[in-house]
Design a protein around this nucleic acid. Sequence first.
DNA 1: TTGTAGGCGTTATCAT
DNA 2: ATGATAACGCCTACAA
Lengths: 339, 339
Amino acid sequence: MATLQDVARRAGVAPITVSRVVNNSGYVAQEVRARVEAAVAELGYVPNTLARSLRSRRTNTLALVLTDLTNPFFTTVARGAEDAASDAGLMMIVCNTDESAEEEAKYVKLLVQHRVDGILLVPACDGAEPLRFAQRHGVPVVVLDRRLPGVAADTVRCDSERGARELGELLVGLGHRAAAVLAGPVGVSTSDDRVSGFGAALATSGAVCAVYHGEFTQDSGAALVRAALAGEPRPTALFAANNFLTIGALRGLRELGLRVPEDVALVGFDDLPPALVTFPFLTVAAQPAYEMGRLAVEVLLARVRGDQEAPAPTREIVLPTELIVRQSSGARRPANPRE
Amino acid sequence: MATLQDVARRAGVAPITVSRVVNNSGYVAQEVRARVEAAVAELGYVPNTLARSLRSRRTNTLALVLTDLTNPFFTTVARGAEDAASDAGLMMIVCNTDESAEEEAKYVKLLVQHRVDGILLVPACDGAEPLRFAQRHGVPVVVLDRRLPGVAADTVRCDSERGARELGELLVGLGHRAAAVLAGPVGVSTSDDRVSGFGAALATSGAVCAVYHGEFTQDSGAALVRAALAGEPRPTALFAANNFLTIGALRGLRELGLRVPEDVALVGFDDLPPALVTFPFLTVAAQPAYEMGRLAVEVLLARVRGDQEAPAPTREIVLPTELIVRQSSGARRPANPRE
DNA sequence: TTGTAGGCGTTATCAT
DNA sequence: ATGATAACGCCTACAA
């Protein structure tokens, strides 16, 4: 494998001159540049980023630490982030924590060892140790999708509370007086915010709202549906706090022989990518996943490239969700199905 | 940021001794080890992988170059690959080429510069230049999902031809005499193999099979359905060559007011992850995506860790698909719907 | 069991 | 416009 030295010898110049040609920096005479470029081509020279990074303290690599790439919401976030990183000439490392705090800590430590330029972190839970660890070691972190209270870090997320409130208001407006939330784990801010936002909307109108906690999985959605429908008073509308829960709820309702929205109304958080849906049917609060990914990288790069001595104040960017009303929320409360 | 030197000074030993403690290599006295570990903790020392890699010529990083992370098939492959890499203590860089040969070349070059230990490559097209480039520079490549004829490289893929043949035979067995394939781009081996496998099954029984080429997208699926159903003789069964095409076909058929399978039978390649499907309805040839990802990493690691001087012979691992018969293929040819 | 010397491939700094 | 020198942080080889 040819090195910069080899190229220098071949071109009859000093190593630093080759460096200047390769990096397009400093002054190099036309004639010399041509000679160096020829040598580069002849030897098939490829710069060694490791050595470069060791010197320059820049790896041109970012990392995205998320809970589960398999969730289409995060897939889309990842895609947006990767595209933005690529535009800036950076590579992107992807890590799945499966909502495990230990995995998160393990990965963050590895990433610091690798001296990535920055980390996009979807925190697995409310522990902020991994984040602080990275910051302590000079690696900027942008918190993505979730809140991490009491930590000074840039954040890019959606307004879960408001999105959920809008869904609640929609259902109240349709005449529902008893609803249930199929929620994720307690302590995950997105779930908590959605529970409180939805609950607030129902409470305002004096409607009843029960909350059932589970995991962000399809199986959990199906199980929670059964629990919810056994509650008193029996809910006429359900709110699933993420896409997997929504799909599971749909399955659970089918298994119970209940139709949506005729027998029970159903709304959810997160839309599914158009490519995956034949017939858009679910009423949802949709998050701009792709833009979140892109934006988070931009915020991170601003931090990476910003003045490390006099850092800019921390930003919290809260994007709005989009209320998309389709069939699953129904047009009227189920008590009198067709008027 | 503390370095190994700093730790050495603090512990009153030579740098190499710290190295030995940190890497658990060589002999270190209990007492000295304790002193060094204390210094490591006090200074919050984190080894610098860049320096280590520069010396050791190992980055402990792999790369996955695929066409579109947004496709659930690739998402699942990526998940499997990342899990396997993580088990081995490696990081994983992910790159999307969007089926563009230029993007592929750009990424592979960057990855070689970064001295990744190996690359998992889903080739964008039949050009093998990027692959050869990586190999020339000592970076092992495993070709994933697709064939790349005429290249000496390990390959992990599914038997597309056979999977498609089985789907064809199923339809023939159900009485279909005229079918159409909604295919991907010409030159992409998975599409080509599926076309030929399906065609072979129909030809064997003297049935007619038309082929319509498009992209691996939902919109393409919807468009191709229209073209296919305008053909003579009108097909009674459709085969979509990947998941997005299948979903698009389903949408196209709905827009045409045609029912599946009553009016037209539909089978596809790739199953959708259970988490994404409420009601499994499609008859498909399913690929073991997660296992493909894991296996590809294992093959790659064997190559990375193998003897570089006397490399083992190249392997081509061809996994079987699973024929999953559900409702969309129907129970009988549509001419006499309910007997 | 511990240490010394040197180099991995590049670039920052200062000189010419 | 070009170069000499040193250093980035670590580890291999050898020495003691």
